[in-house]
Design a protein around this nucleic acid. Structure first.
Length: 439
RNA sequence: GCCCAGGUAGUAUAGUUCGGUCCAGUAUAUGCGGCUGUCGCCCGCAGGACCCGGGUCCGAAUCCCGGCCUGGGCGCCA
């Protein structure tokens, strides 16, 4: 088939911008054929673009022969341009249709698509991810990413307003940031290096100069996790603030979350409706429970966690909804948290780390950090880490490390909460997990 | 890494209990034909599948073993 070029055509409107008030006007639309319904003497072509769909109506005896013959060849997913006249009508849900004067076909598509794009026979997540580029052409599948965009924009707005600087730290590092989690090794000009699991140490160092920083970016964990809420590559929204403690950054966090929910609820009406999901804006302050309180509540449910152990997922599920959807857990046992979390003054078995939970999902973790070099080295040793491998980090503590605190939001997990998606792979464009490396 | 359940046309499913009724049914998609107001259009026709390897058996989609993959859960982790 002879394909058309863009030529001098310029889009005048997205589908959603055309309203009955444009009756009689000429528009140039770009997009894709979503569906062709041919009734014999009349043909309906549903044109889709990023913002929605619009009906192009072709009364076969009334349009120009070139338009008719072009429209004869149209198939699903052809990339097309339509120049035509807007007509007010009560025959379509939108109250308008477009009668074409000229149609351009830019590219074609295979006859048999790998997934059903009309939504009549929804595909499984696996088939969808294998054909992700096409999968995202479905409104309800793209919706989660539009919501993620607005959520991240809200977070950025809020942090900029509070005086945070956006920074970028290395993804390629020489040694483990935190110990614990498994790292992906990479070859760095013959040296052994790793993909970063977190910006933790760098963002802490930046508090002694830039004071309030945040970073949004991907991080990598080589864990063999097999759950609905783990990815090998995930996006973290990290902040770190000088001259602040856990309570300060918890207050910042709950406002960030509230503002984000409010923004998404207001700006993503169409997307939320496509997802059939409602976002509720949480009240402030979020409830705060200590680790001991959670353990006591679990005892009432006949779940006994020995003091000092991490709280397993089934225990969180058992706690039910009465805790509210968002809640903090504070006062964790020091040894259950990372080495850089500050033990409580006068009660060193507890620490100033916290988690923000959404029901049973850990959304955010954070805390007051240790600013004292000797104490930090002590904690490293207790965790079985060798302070020598952190010498570049530790030297920063010789130059006036301020008291500081911070947190990290798992962006995909937040997106799950904002979209109602139950599998984290739905809210990652091209998810990477233990077995999936493509597309 | 462990436990449970699975893997059937492009997609989604029925059939597996108790091997023969299944050269595998249905919907949707695709192709061809028809239809002037559809919007999950409708009608007719056509082609299209039992995850891979091995085993048992007269006979395997169905039973057994191994592998790979998927869903759910656990662990690890965040």
């Amino acid at each position: 088939m002879a394909l058309d070029s863009l030529g001098d055509w310029v889009r005048t409107s997205y589908s959603s911008n055309v309203t009955p008030e444009n009756d009689g006007e000429e528009v140039t639309l770009f997009g894709w054929v979503q569906e062709v319904r041919d009734l014999g003497g009349i043909r309906f072509v549903i044109l889709q673009d990023r913002e929605g769909t619009i009906q192009v109506t072709i009364p076969k005896k009334k349009v120009a022969p070139e338009v008719l013959s072009k429209s004869d060849t149209l198939q699903k997913r052809y990339s097309v341009g339509v120049k035509g006249t807007v007509k007010k009508t009560n025959m379509t849900p939108r109250g308008i249709e477009v009668i074409p004067k000229e149609i351009k076909i830019f590219t074609t598509a295979t006859e048999q698509l790998p997934i059903d794009i009309t939504g009549k026979t929804p595909a499984n997540i696996e088939a969808r991810l294998d054909a992700r580029a096409l999968d995202l052409c479905l409104e309800q599948n793209a919706a989660a990413f539009k919501i993620q965009h607005h959520a991240l924009a809200a977070i950025r707005d809020f942090l900029f307003e509070k005086g945070f600087l956006e920074v970028h730290t290395p993804r390629i590092i020489a040694s483990a940031t935190e110990g614990g989690a498994e790292l992906f090794p990479v070859d760095y000009f013959g040296q052994k290096a790793y993909l970063a699991q977190s910006p933790q140490l760098y963002k802490e160092q930046l508090t002694m100069s830039l004071e309030k920083v945040f970073e949004v970016g991907p991080f990598f964990r080589a864990e063999l996790s097999h759950t609905r809420r783990h990815l090998s590559e995930f996006v973290s929204v990290d902040i770190e603030q000088a001259f602040a403690n856990a309570e300060d950054v918890m207050q910042l966090l709950e406002r960030v979350i509230q503002y984000t929910c409010k923004t998404v609820k207001e700006e993503c009406v169409k997307e939320l409706s496509a997802l059939k999901y409602k976002v509720t804006v949480p009240e402030l302050p979020f409830k705060r429970f200590t680790y001991d309180e959670i353990l006591n509540d679990l005892k009432k449910e006949d779940i006994n966690i020995p003091w000092g152990e991490d709280i397993p997922t089934p225990a969180f599920r058992a706690l039910g909804k009465e805790r509210g959807y968002y809640y903090f857990i504070t006062d964790w046992p020091t040894h259950a948290k990372a080495f850089y979390i500050k033990p409580k003054d006068g009660k060193p078995e507890l620490c100033e780390g916290f988690d923000l939970m959404w029901r049973w999902i850990e959304l955010v973790s954070g805390g007051t950090r240790i600013a004292d070099k000797m104490l930090l080295m002590e904690r490293m040793k207790e965790k079985g880490l060798n302070p020598n491998s952190f010498k570049y980090h530790l030297q920063a503590f010789d130059y006036g490390m301020p008291p500081h605190a911070g947190w990290a939001i798992g962006l995909e997990r937040l997106t799950m909460v904002l979209t109602g998606k139950k599998n984290i792979r739905e809210v990652s464009l091209y998810p990477r997990d233990r077995v999936r490396l493509t597309p």
